[in-house]
Simulated assay, not measured.
Amino acid sequence: GGGSHYGLPGITPAEARAGLDKPIFRKLEAAAEQSPEDYRPVFSVRIESLAELRQRVVELGGKAFIKPACEGASRGCRVIHHPSECDEAWQALKPYREGGIVLEELIQNAREYSWDYVAGSTWVTEKTTTEGAYRAEIQQVVPAPLAADVQARLAAAGRHMSGLVSQANGAYHNEVFLRSDGLTSAVETNMRPGGMHIWDLARLAFVDFDPWERWVRWAVEGKTDPRDPVARGYCGIRLVRAPAGGLLRYVPDIESLARDLNIELVEAVYTKRLSDSVTALVKDNTSFIGHIVLFSEDYAQLSDNLLRLADAIESRVEVTSLAAPARAAG
């Protein structure tokens, strides 16, 4: 894969497929002879028709999670709360049917984390997803604030997942559920840096640690360093939503809002421009209008600042509605 032609370290094509194709990972997971004590495989099945979807959702107790087999950025992922939602969900996944559709048991009331790995060093990232029909990631914090035993459980799950797909990759971003009963389950495995700037957050959160530089050193020299980075504080990113659907008419200046709230800003970016089309229904990561990055030595303070600043921005954003104009009476 990629580098083996030039004698660079890397993964085999079969390992790459397991990292990209979610059903292959679930097969490997189900077949594993050993797994961590607190780890539970997730029931998962490929769906070929609407009739099959209905039948499987009923078998799973009327609730399930459906997603494309080979997409990223939360695209197409949705929750089915009741068998009556199958028709609409099947219709919505039409663009992805060629690549395959996967149905999984719905894991409820779980917290989501990722086990992030680069060239021997690992940490756990806390992720927050939107509520509702679609599950899109809206916030990430590095490192996740965890008790030592929970940290160990999530790390064991992440390491187990990486071992299922490949022993020899330089980067992993393995998404893990921490269930309400304290057990762990895999969301999915990715043999790449985490999205949503996770490596940039890590560079800011940890002392003397640059994931990108480590990755390059691993790729060029095959160098790994099994020491985990030491945190100097917490770094978080939160995505910003549009308050309504339509055309973006006005956005506030985030720097001055942050100053007014006495919040130190690391980064603020609008990804949508004025007069761009925006939506209030967050379906995936492209539905957001921008993001903020903040740092604090205190997790509770960071958490509060991310929410306060995002609220301040979102409540000031103005959108021109595209509702049909009322016809003049006549």
Rank of each mutant, 00 (worst) to 15 (best):
Asp311Phe: 00
Pro36Met: 09
Gln167Trp: 11
Cys235Trp: 04
Phe206Pro: 07
Val102Ile: 14
Ser296Tyr: 00
Arg153Asp: 11
Glu37Ala: 14
Tyr39Ile: 02
Gly233Cys: 05
Leu178Gln: 04
Arg75Phe: 00
Cys235Ile: 01
Ala324Arg: 15
Arg316Ile: 07
Thr189Cys: 12
Ala186Asn: 11
Ala202Gly: 15
Pro325Cys: 02
Phe209Cys: 12
Glu37Phe: 15
Asn174Trp: 13
Pro13Tyr: 07
Thr184Val: 02
Arg327Ile: 04
Ile138Glu: 12
Trp123Cys: 08
Tyr172Gly: 01
Glu105His: 07
Ile101Glu: 01
Met196Trp: 01
Pro325Trp: 03
Arg259Ile: 07
Leu257Ser: 06
Leu322Val: 13
Thr320Gly: 13
Ile263Pro: 09
Thr189Pro: 04
Asp276Leu: 03
Ala326Glu: 11
Leu248Lys: 06
Leu178Glu: 03
Ile24Thr: 14
Gly222Ala: 08
Ala231Ser: 15
Gly132Cys: 09
Tyr234Cys: 03
Glu213Ser: 14
Phe206Ile: 05
Gly19Ile: 03
Pro23Thr: 09
Gly194Glu: 08
His160Cys: 08
Lys94Cys: 03
Ser287Pro: 13
Gly120Thr: 06
Thr129Glu: 12
Ile24Cys: 05
Lys27Cys: 12
Gln91Thr: 04
Ala136Phe: 02
Glu104Lys: 10
Ser35Asn: 11
Thr129Tyr: 10
Ala64Asn: 02
Pro211Asn: 08
Asp260His: 08
Leu204Gly: 05
Val141Asp: 04
Arg217His: 13
Trp218Phe: 14
Asn305Leu: 01
Arg238Val: 13
Ser321Asn: 11
Glu267Tyr: 07
Tyr134Val: 02
Arg192Gly: 05
Gly100Gln: 12
Leu309Tyr: 06
Pro95Trp: 13
Lys94Glu: 15
Tyr113Gln: 02
Ala119Met: 04
Leu322Ser: 12
Asp228Cys: 08
Gln140Asn: 04
Ala69Met: 07
Asp276Trp: 00
Ile47Phe: 01
Ala157Gln: 10
Leu265Gln: 05
Val58Ala: 08
Glu213Trp: 08
Arg56Lys: 12
Asp116Trp: 08
Ile11Ser: 09
Trp218Ala: 04
Gln91Pro: 02
Val165Glu: 10
Pro95Leu: 08
Thr129Ser: 11
Ala110Tyr: 11
Lys272Tyr: 00
Thr130Asp: 00
Asp149Phe: 01
Trp115Thr: 09
Cys235Ala: 15
Leu201Tyr: 11
Met161Val: 15
Ala144Asn: 06
Leu247Gln: 13
Leu8Met: 15
Ala268Asn: 02
Arg259Gly: 04
Arg40Lys: 14
Asn109Arg: 12
Gly245Thr: 15
Ala152Cys: 03
Ser114Asp: 07
Glu297His: 15
Pro13Ile: 06
Gly290Glu: 07
Ser114Pro: 01
Val216Asn: 02
Ala168Gln: 14
Gln34Ser: 14
Arg40Ile: 11
Val278Asp: 10
Ala30His: 10
Val251Lys: 13
Ala110Ser: 12
Ile66Tyr: 04
Ala51Met: 10
Lys94Trp: 01
Glu137Arg: 01
